[in-house]
Amino acid sequence: MTTHAPLAIEVTGLEKSFGDTHAVAGVDLAVPEGSIYGVLGPNGAGKTTVIRMLATLIPPDAGTARVLGHDIRTEGDAVRSLVSLTGQLASVDEELTGRENLILLGRLLGLSRSASRTRADELLEAFGISEAAARLVKHYSGGMRRRLDIAASIVVTPRLMFLDEPTTGLDPRSRGQVWEIARALQAGGTTILLCTQYLEEADQLADGIAVIDRGKVIAEGTPGQLKASVGTGGLKVRLLDPGQRGDAAGILERAVGAVVLDADPAALSVSSADASRAADGVSALARAGLGIAEFSLGQPSLDEVFLALTGHLAEERDATLEEQSS
């Protein structure tokens, strides 16, 4: 990256194990101040563990990390006074109302009683939760809870914010709102470390991305660089007749590039294609008389990123997914 901004997060050789699990196995990160930095990886990659160490919740086994210039091991208190954590589990108190949650945090951060009430009402209004202010958080929808969670993180504006999978489980509209909020925070000067499982989310928000798997950074770059290494978009095709998939694969292979057969027996995708070549591929299928149920041109999925980056991880991940579902 060409930026010369001072670093908000500087991590070298960070490690953490739980028993035999090497949750974080040597991570290096350099996050420029003022940026949104995406840590992208599948479930169990070690994202949350990295955040928990950087937020001084758990000590690392090895490595060094400085957050806004402060060593996380020896200057924990200084780190805590500059950062906010929006955890993967909603980090708000479900047994209190939304307003009480924000007042509680205001008081804990040193606002006077009246100032914390004013601040709570201001945030409730800004985040569109005024109407639910007096309701217990356990009755909130996922999107409302997430917005409250983020509001709770900016009762006093932090210099750095950890956002751990802020949109997992949210509907597209709530997801868009959370993205808007993240952009507004960045515009206000807050650096954000964003953990996510969605390439689209990292692409939407992040200035830089580290792809992490099994506790290691396996790729790093801007969203553009990352996508270029994968292809600008994936063409997905579903055929009317699964029996024709072999023929279709041959045609797409010639017209576009390497073909991936999906779990769906009628579907296949090409992970390396630009839009016009993808269009050629679709018309080649049509000319050959193969019936197409649907096709789409989209962002590469995390699976495709993994496949492109490592070649073999995708299969192993499928295997673990099967284990989980059985």
């Binding site: 201001e122 808007e180 909020i181 507004a184």
Partner: peptide
């Protein structure tokens, strides 16, 4: 609409207005 969710302008405003108070 305001009721639909976060109001981005207000969020920006809310971020801008705080100074860190002394620690209790």
């Amino acid at each position: 609409p305001v009721t639909a969710g976060a109001d981005t302008a207000a969020v920006r405003q809310a971020i801008a207005t705080t100074a860190r108070p002394p620690r209790p």
